[in-house]
Simulated assay, not measured.
Amino acid sequence: MEWQLIAKDFANCDGALCDIYVQDASVDDWQAVIDSLRQSKFRLELQINGQVTELPRDVSKLLFRDPSVSCPSMYVHIGSTTLNCHFFTAEEIEFDLNPRDMQPELLPDVLSFLKLLGRATSKPVILTVENTPEAAIMRFEPTNSEVEYVGPAYSS
């Protein structure tokens, strides 16, 4: 995928974040993603109540936690940026990406990340404008193992 093809989609986000989604997920999908990330080149950091803590082996401890504990935040450091993940629900895996961080040199890492999620779950992965799955910019389909440009996310 060429940077020139997608650059305008990140420039046109008007201050919104981008979301990376695996929808119709399960606890097993979450576990597969965490296990794959542990083995990847990406550095992980987990925070609970603002404190850095060890990422548990069993992801269900993050999804089904004591309600008095704030929602955990996992940070995935890829290239020159960080993707943010919150364990809101077992049914949807979501990572936030700041589109202002997107530069040509980061694109290979983002594509690699999308493929990692799709291969771990054997499910489609989309990169969208924040909270707008219908405004996809990129999509990974496990049936063809490639990330495809879907955009433009916004019409001009």
Rank of each mutant, 00 (worst) to 15 (best):
I48K: 09
L63H: 00
Q51T: 12
D66R: 01
G79W: 04
Y75T: 11
V76N: 02
R57K: 14
E92D: 11
G118W: 01
P124H: 07
Y75N: 11
F88I: 07
V33D: 09
S60V: 02
Q51K: 14
D66V: 01
L97R: 00
S112W: 12
A90E: 05
V33S: 08
C71S: 11
E105S: 14
L44F: 12
N49R: 09
R100C: 11
S36E: 05
T82D: 11
N49F: 05
D101L: 09
P67C: 01
E54W: 09
L111I: 12
P104C: 08
Y75M: 15
G79T: 06
V76H: 04
S122W: 10
I48S: 11
L117R: 08
T82R: 15
A120K: 06
R100E: 15
P99L: 05
E54Q: 14
K115T: 15
Q51E: 12
D66E: 05
R65G: 01
D58V: 13
F42Y: 01
E94K: 04
L116K: 00
F42G: 04
K123L: 05
L114N: 08
R119D: 12
V59R: 05
V76P: 03
Q103V: 08
P104H: 06
R65I: 00
V59D: 04
C71P: 07
L63T: 00
P56C: 02
I78Q: 05
F64P: 02
L116A: 00
D58L: 12
F42H: 03
S80W: 12
L37I: 07
T53P: 08
L117K: 08
L97P: 00
Q39P: 07
E92K: 13
R65N: 00
E54D: 14
N84T: 15
L55T: 07
D35F: 06
K61D: 10
K115S: 15
D109Y: 10
I34D: 03
S73C: 13
Q47M: 15
